[in-house]
Structure formats: structure tokens, C-alpha cells
């Protein structure tokens, strides 16, 4: 294999590996909390593919294919992480040292749950999440 072919293969391995690693390890806090990691990996894959294109002499298509794949992932991943996944910062009703607004919501069996139920009894970890996904 030419050095261009090796670089192209490495680029594809880095790009696909980043996707696989993120999907497999997203439950690990350090992976999940550094989503920019996959963008960096895609940028690295793109750089490797660009180098492969520059060095390609006879058989150019593997290098171009690697460049197409990695740059597509770079644009899509960067757009997702830096645009789609951003949550606008707006003021919240949460203040350390203060009680948050109380509420009453039904639990899975339909029984009402209020913060007041726990007052004087148990600390509460309140988790707001987007839903099951």
C-alpha cells in the first residue's frame, strides 16, 4: 500500500472509530461530557485524508473517499455539537440557599408527588431530563 493509501485508511479508522467510541461509551461521564472530542477526531481524520490526497499519485480514489467521509462527518458533527446541542442560557428559578417552587405531579402510578412530601424527611435529587432517548 502506498503512503497515501495508508493515510486514507488511517483517516477512515479514526473517523469511524470516533463514532463507534462515542456510541459505545456515551454512558461514561467523561466521554459524554466531552462531545467536542468527536469533533476533534473528525478534524484529525480530515487532516489525515487531506494529506493522503496531497500524496496520492496513481490510485487517488481512496484518498478522496476518505476526505469526503471525514469532512462530511466534521461538518455534521461540528454542526450538531456547536449548534443543535446548544441550550440557550436563560434565568432559572434556582438559587442555592433558597427553596425552589413547589409542585405536585403524578408519579408512574398516578399518585401525586410534591416536594413538600419530603420536607423534614429526606433530601431530594431533582432531575429534569428531556425524555426517554
Amino acid at each position: 500500500m502506498t503512503s497515501s493509501g495508508r493515510l486514507a485508511a488511517l483517516s477512515v479508522v479514526v473517523a469511524i472509530g470516533a463514532v463507534a467510541a462515542y456510541v459505545l461509551l456515551h454512558r461514561v461521564a467523561v466521554v459524554r461530557n466531552h462531545p467536542e472530542g468527536y469533533v476533534v477526531a473528525f478534524a484529525l481524520a480530515t487532516a489525515l485524508a487531506a494529506l493522503a490526497v496531497a500524496r496520492a499519485r496513481a490510485r487517488r480514489w481512496p484518498a478522496w473517499l476518505a476526505l469526503g467521509l471525514s469532512s462530511l462527518l466534521l461538518v455534521a458533527g461540528g454542526w450538531f455539537n456547536f449548534v443543535v446541542a446548544q441550550v440557550p442560557v436563560t434565568p432559572t428559578a434556582l438559587r442555592v440557599g433558597e427553596r425552589p417552587p413547589d409542585f405536585t405531579l403524578p408519579d408512574a402510578t398516578g399518585r401525586p408527588v410534591s416536594l413538600e412530601d419530603y420536607r423534614g424527611k429526606k433530601p431530594v435529587v431533582l432531575v429534569f431530563y428531556r425524555g426517554y432517548w
Partner: peptide
Amino acid sequence: ATVVLDRDG
């Protein structure tokens, strides 16, 4: 969001 409330809420 995650909020930790003490025994007094």
C-alpha cells in the same frame, strides 16, 4: 438539570 435539595427542601 440536576438539583440537590437538603432535608428542608
